[in-house]
Amino acid sequence: MMAIIPLALFGLDVSWDATLRNVILGSVILGMTSGMVGSFAVLRRQSLIGDALAHAALPGICLAFMVTGTRSTEVLLIGGALSGLLGTAVLLVINRWSIISMETALGVVLSVFFGFGILLLTRVQHGGDAAQSGLDRFIFGQAATILPRDVTIMLVVAVIVLGVLAACFKELKVLTFDPLFAASIGVSPPLVGALLSALLVLTIMIGLQTVGVILMVSLLIAPAVAARQWTSSLAGMVLLSGFFGLVAGVSGSVASSLIDRLPTGPMIVIAATVIVALSLLFAPERGVLSTWRSRRTRAEHFRTILAAADHHGVSSR
């Protein structure tokens, strides 16, 4: 549909073709959504639940294929979403009804579901039909296989997720900040917690094709952590996080298309991590550099005062 439009970007020729457009669109949608939803996961200390849920999606994807025989993205993603939600439920049950700690429960769900997924995947592959099934593209992501249709699906899901986020913003905010108080004003922690998990699962579905199961967690965490360093309001953090996610998505996609043999998923993750590193170092007030500098200034100031006191024979006792 799109003609090939050459684009001079830093003196390099970027072939702006349909594939690249899809990849960039997909990455933008992914980056924004995961940045925003990830903010809440990070603030709730649930960063790694996203990792577990992403891994838990694999068996669902394989089963969806095995049951329906179609490779159409929405069917596979629905399967992934369902098994992701199942993973959430299992997590809660393990955490609530046994002495197993949350960290361990996450590890169990993550590895067992994923292992089961691999078992199913290899079964499908050995079955012959699915050497072309392309199911394994969900593990590492294979942005080049994103079709315009897939982009539409991602967009629809993203709109739903962000819509819910906007509508329930204050409920999510008060729940994350002070769960006891939230319960006392009628914002039920289990209900809103479940809502957030559902949003997380949907967000992960958006990202599976681009960055894959293993790297998805980075996009939920990095933009949010980066954003936190620059702002002190929740709304600001969420929006900035979405922006950082978007930037990471675009830069990763463009970089991978400019340079040969550079897979999109990892590039996006590297971009996001660079953004975080820069934020941690250079953000005003909170940044490492800024804190170090102000600490040094204070120490010097203090030394000056002490020296002056000594000089004037004032006891420092």
């Binding site: 990070v42 200390r45 649930q46 960063s47 790694l48 996203g50 990792d51 590492f140 293993i214 790297l215 967690v217 980075s218 939920l220 965490i221 990095a222 949010a224 952590v225 936190r228 360093q229 340079i259 040969d260 043999r261 550079l262 897979p263 998923g265 990892p266 590039m267 993750v269 590297i270 991590t273 975080v276 941690l280 909170r286 490492v288």
Partner: peptide, 29 residues
């Protein structure tokens, strides 16, 4: 640094290292 909680720190570091690994494998086959 005091700026990042433990679970987030883990989720920042390992995907990056893993991505670097995949990057190297793809780029320098």
């Amino acid at each position: 640094t005091g700026l990042v909680k433990e679970d987030a720190a883990i989720g920042l570091v390992f995907p990056f290292l893993f991505a670097l690994g995949v990057f190297m494998i793809s780029r320098f086959p």
